[in-house]
Amino acid sequence: MKTLTQLSVFLENKVGQIAQVCKTLADANVSLAALSIAESPEFGIARLVVDDSSKAADALRAAKYIVKATPVVAVVVPDRPGGMAQVVTTLSSKGCDIEYSYAFAAQANDMAVLVFRFKDIETAASVLADAGLATIDEKEIKS
């Protein structure tokens, strides 16, 4: 099973917080593939997919952020109507519980990448494999 390491960063709800995270990554020469922000009224959690998660985590921790690494599954689908629908229908028909999800467009080849955080990643991965859906890991983000 291929998984991606997603980095979550705690953000106080203040102006400039996201800019600082991005700057830290840029200074470390890390490329940001996807960013999703979960927010509550008082704080936010930035969830990041990058091309080098260990370098990114080191840079963020050195800048005193608290960072949590979580395994997520990234599914590649054709970038066209119904692409995502097929994946989530498959998952829900097998009872896979999605905690949250976000998507990003892949480079050049008209594919989209759907990032999923599952309660039970093992089961979800086998459901995706059985349905013949392709997943990617960090190395493939770089390419």
């Binding site: 979550s8 927010e39 509550s40 959690i45 608290i66 949590k68």
Partner: peptide, 15 residues
């Protein structure tokens, strides 16, 4: 203050 050990990627866990 949140601690590094208990910080979670889930908003509901933080709530």
């Amino acid at each position: 203050e949140v601690t590094a050990e208990t910080f979670s990627d889930s908003v509901s866990a933080m709530e």
